[in-house]
Design a protein around this nucleic acid. Structure first.
Lengths: 129, 129, 129, 129
DNA sequence: GTGGTCTAGACCACT
DNA sequence: GTGGTCTAGACCACA
């Protein structure tokens, strides 16, 4: 029932990442109210304190705001969310390019691969490397 | 001294992947002799049996051949190595695209990102998404 | 209690052969559950790891499938089992013909011998070659 | 340089079998002189006493005769040699049929197999089981 | 209780 | 010194 967590990194970090995903992907739209700490903790299968710590991180980054007595809401600063989205995407791209580099490939190969893989619905593609 | 291993997947699988990287990247060129089982085990910080199991996998895939009592050598079948390289690259690309998809992005965004990130040496780029 | 094992070939190879016999002969029918690794190891009088290695070979050949935490079952692919049966029979026949060849006999003599020996219940037959 | 001997059966028994093969196959023709005990022992890589014991067995079976001061010769009783040849062939055939029986096959299948395998020079045959 | 993985240490054949 | 095999014993996730 709990989220799948790796054991090799702090749990609260992994929670931060998952919640950040929900925000930048629009699952938690700008200005909307997110579930209570208690509910989120239950959903994640972690201690509420751990969830609280994760939410604190997101608030510090400006992605969440606390409405005093009315829970927490996602920021309405869509530009900030956009930057965050961009930042995550760039990071993933850097990881991807680093892996290609380890294979002796460059960004040009990466572009080809992305286009080729995206264009193939079938399991295998006859395309040359 | 030991290689960094995650705890969430079998060690020998991770060894297989790392050695496969060394082969397809040319660090262990076609036809060349690889270090002894014991040496590789020591380098990886694992039991020789674990390394042996990993090497058995690679041999079953045809990437390695055993020379009686004279160690193991990388296959000279460069076509096979090329296929393996392509296979790994495609797999990494699929992982990358899946992550982008989770961010609400598609392959076109991926191409843009790869080109943009590859063009920037600095850690961050001011470009908007 | 332990199986009779020759010392001139790896034990796990001999285990593979015996289990393969049980499968192709129908002693372990298609789709049926085979005894646990530990039980088979005990029956064969070998270490569970050795049995595991043998079972791994059979699984790689597609004759066995692993059911998560519920043991291993024989494949339901009767065609594959049939092929394996044929393959073993052909191999034994090649060995037989090679021996006859060493005696200066050919396949025709083999056919005669098989028919003659099969027709005699007693240990010796008075027929001339 | 020495003959290949299994470790699971007495060496002299294996020598007897090999020499018997040479006689029935005609490599040592009826009436011919066989090499000296010393030479045969050297060829086999065994102690001359072991070879002597083996030759004693063959003499007891009537396949060899000792010519007092002139070494040993193969019997000229071609009928005896023929019987021996037949006996060996029958024994091998019994072994073969026993193996087929273990696979759930009978002598008819054996005849088919012998004809099919003998008829195929190519590595694989498309014939049905 | 199941299969799977890993370690530690041993012995073997080959050269 | 090489790869290969085997044992003994331990721990893990899963259900």
């Amino acid at each position: 029932m709990a989220w799948e967590m790796k054991t090799d990194r702090p749990i609260y970090i992994q929670i931060v990442e998952r919640l950040k995903m929900r925000i930048v992907s629009g699952e938690y739209p700008p200005g909307s109210k997110i579930p209570s700490v208690r509910d989120l903790a239950a959903e994640a299968g972690v201690n509420p304190n751990t969830m609280q710590k994760a939410l604190g991180d997101l608030e510090r980054e400006g992605l969440l705001h606390t409405q005093r007595t009315n829970g927490k809401t996602v920021t309405e600063d869509e530009q900030l969310i956009g930057k965050m989205l961009d930042s995550i995407a760039v990071e993933e791209t850097e990881i991807y390019l680093t892996k290609l580099e380890g294979l002796g490939m460059d960004a040009g190969d990466g572009v080809n691969l992305v286009q080729r893989v995206a264009g193939s619905k079938s399991k295998y593609d006859t395309g040359e490397l």
